[in-house]
Simulated scan of single mutants.
Amino acid sequence: MARFILQTLLAIAVATSALPTDNSTNFVGPENGNLVIVGGGSLDDSILQKVIDLAGGNDSSIVVIPTAQGDPSYDQNAANADDFRRLGSKSVTVLHTYDPEVANTEEFVQPLVNATGVWFGGGRQWRLVDAYAGTLTEQKIRAVLDAGGVIGGSSAGASIQGDFLARGDTKSNSLIIGDHQQGFAYVKNVAIDQHVLVRNRHFDMLNVLKYKPGILGIAINENTAVHVSQNTAEVFGASYAIIYDGTYWSRDGDDANQIPDPSGLFYFLRQGDIYDLGLRKVVHAS
């Protein structure tokens, strides 16, 4: 028991040091608007419908960005755009370039001006960085969120929403710490991984925590999402999200007989579970 208490105290110290240092907000997630962070794979309509609902329902205007996929070009059905139309979104536009100079023009960003939602498709997240980081496009995407809209994305489109860019290596997606390490930081001091259980990636995030002490790790399995608003993160979908915050949590409510030290701890959340990103604790178990 003494060992468990010591581990818990150490974890609390780490979590406290990891809270956002930006004094303009007390939130780890967006102060305004919503995020839908999806772990990849084939998606149930309920996940895409959640994006539509948060973007304004049938009146939503959604911009789909398929750039992470790496194809030479895209049609207007790319990266779930056709699914958003099928489910009733009023306006769906596919927006793409690999050229940051193009992404920095007023003409290119016009579809984002009246958008109420943005969706990032899957692929390799470093392509999103190379095309849009530091450009007018990145500014306008964040403006959609700041105005109360929604940013969603699956696979690469999930990881890009984090602060530390997990699997941002240009050579291999098997490296969780790569040559691109800065995401778009819609959630601060958080790293996001995806396809986690089906690809046996559930130990990989521990390497990020060693590399970036104090960061919060979230890894999401396929066809599963985390809805983030301010400090509230709610899991929904078919499988699990894994939390790496240096603490132990059990749905049974009992202390573990034997657990690793905080550097090796993680636990699973399922649909309906709610996690507080600021307190770094489960606040509701389904």
Rank of each mutant, 00 (worst) to 15 (best):
M1F: 08
F4Y: 10
T8S: 10
T8R: 13
I12T: 14
A13K: 15
V14H: 13
S17K: 15
L19A: 07
P20W: 11
N26R: 14
G33A: 14
S42Y: 14
S42Q: 15
L43T: 04
I47W: 10
I47T: 14
I47G: 07
Q49S: 14
K50I: 05
V51G: 02
A55C: 05
N58R: 15
V64D: 02
Q69A: 08
G70A: 01
D71N: 10
D71P: 00
P72Y: 12
S73K: 07
S73R: 05
D83T: 14
S89G: 03
S89I: 02
K90L: 06
V92W: 06
L95M: 05
L95A: 02
L95G: 00
H96A: 12
Y98M: 11
D99S: 07
D99P: 04
T105E: 05
T105D: 06
T105Y: 06
F108T: 01
N114E: 13
N114V: 02
T116Y: 03
V118K: 04
W126L: 01
R127P: 00
V129L: 01
A133N: 09
T135H: 02
T137L: 05
I141H: 05
A143H: 10
A147H: 11
A147W: 01
G148E: 11
G148H: 06
G149R: 08
I151S: 02
I151K: 03
G152E: 00
G152W: 00
S155M: 00
F164Q: 03
R167H: 08
R167F: 15
D169L: 04
K171Y: 09
N173A: 12
N173G: 12
S174E: 15
L175Q: 11
G178W: 10
Q181N: 10
K188Y: 02
V190N: 02
I192G: 01
H195N: 08
L197N: 06
R201W: 02
D204K: 12
N207D: 14
V208K: 01
L209E: 02
K210T: 08
G214L: 12
I215W: 06
L216K: 08
L216F: 11
G217D: 10
A219W: 05
A219V: 03
N221P: 09
T224K: 12
T224E: 09
Q230D: 13
N231L: 09
N231K: 03
F236N: 03
A241N: 09
W249N: 13
W249P: 08
D255Q: 13
A256K: 13
Q258N: 11
Q258A: 13
P260I: 01
P260Y: 11
P262M: 06
P262S: 06
F266L: 09
F266T: 05
F268I: 05
L269W: 01
R270I: 03
G272H: 11
L279C: 07
L279I: 08
V282A: 11
V282M: 13
